[in-house]
Design a protein around this nucleic acid. Structure first.
Lengths: 212, 212
DNA sequence: TCAGTTGTTGATCATTTGATCAATATAAGA
DNA sequence: TCTTATATTGATCAAATGATCAACAACTGA
């Protein structure tokens, strides 16, 4: 555990340095959780002094909030794109459930869970969490609305149903963090549950095949 | 914020003191979260010196794990008792869903969410979390099994369905922590989802009336 | 009453964390 | 080239936390 002797960091434009620090914070958060995003840890990862990290941020609370925000923004964008590729609302809903429950985003789930916990003591973070939850819900509302309009789904309170589905997915993923062996394929049971939620007949929604 | 001048604490039997310290830790956790369970905070709440708290515990990690364990044990016991009062499996399931989603246990939900997050750095806590999740799942499995046996529910993989329902409830409660206004009554939509999950016809499960 | 057991404490450490600031070094413009 | 602006740093604080231990004091039994 000897500390690496460090040369003075190359002088860069503020814009560039900001990006590097943000990237370091994201890498840290995804690898070791939001709690690992400390002044010194970020500085070390970015190859820079703690003072410089502080120089670019009003506070660590802000950097943590920003980091959460950026990570989730990417998540939403990726899933949104995947959903948009599907041609019908039932396929879109299945794709959404399938990708969010396939366990490939465990690192992001950790960030979510830690954000819920840390948000109680970090108001900036709490604001970001609320904002990004709204964004997630909007995505799901869009899928449901499309399905209702196309006649694939029964008319429902899309907003409420979206919150419900989001809560289910978050809970199942959080659970998988601790008990990843809980139940084999969660997307199948979730699909059945969503059919009940949306008043669909069993089997209307397809369960995504596992990619290999 | 002046520190209260403290007399020497009355000398008590180890058993009694242990109970008091544990109680102080529980009160703190329920009021301000698991993260607030620190050596000094617990000591202050118990009217005792930090050194004494340390004297009764091998480490703070252990005290935090023990505190989580005790709080959740009570939760499970209370809900278990409420469920047992109901006469039929559908009523038991509805009662379980109703009471867990009525928002009256927000303090316990905070403890759960923090435990998921802190468990990544506190192995004792992680073990307790796994243990208590199993306990929760067992309670739900019992209700489902009864229902299948009585013919009220269709035959299903009770273990998997129980994990699913548990995940749903946890997720919805965690969500309510940040967005308590998300959707009015979550139990209604959850009930519909569970009908889908268990392969029941819509409306078979009753939505609990709101107590006033 | 007195000695021994042990519950309890004050003092003190080592760590970790966020934060500040004068000083230094480097890029860019005059 | 020389000056200026500013990116970067080392040194340093204060606060909070977990932990240890010798010393003190209260209960107990002989």
């Amino acid at each position: 555990m000897s500390s690496t002797p460090r040369k003075r960091a190359e002088r860069k434009s503020p814009a560039e340095r900001r990006i590097e620090i943000a990237a370091a914070a994201r890498t840290l958060a995804l690898g070791e959780g939001l709690a690992a995003v400390t002044l010194r840890a970020v500085a070390a990862r970015a190859g820079v002094t703690p003072a410089l990290v502080a120089h670019y941020q009003p506070s660590m609370d802000a950097l943590i909030a920003e980091t959460f925000d950026a990570i989730v923004a990417v998540e939403i964008e990726e899933v949104g794109a995947l959903v948009a590729e599907q041609s019908t609302p039932p396929e879109r809903l299945s794709a959404l459930i399938g990708t969010l429950l396939d366990g490939s985003r465990e690192d992001v789930t950790v960030v979510w869970v830690e954000a819920w916990a840390l948000g109680r003591r970090n108001e900036s973070l709490a604001a970001s969490v609320r904002h990004r939850m709204d964004a997630w819900q909007s995505v799901i509302v869009g899928v449901i609305d499309d399905g209702v309009e196309s006649g694939d789904f029964e008319p429902v309170d899309a907003a409420a149903a979206a919150w419900q589905l989001l809560g289910m997915i978050d809970g199942l993923n959080a659970q998988a963090l601790v008990r990843w062996d809980g139940a084999g394929r969660r997307d199948a049971l979730t699909t059945r549950s969503v059919e009940g939620l949306l008043g669909l007949r069993p089997g209307v929604l397809q369960v995504e095949p596992v990619e290999t």
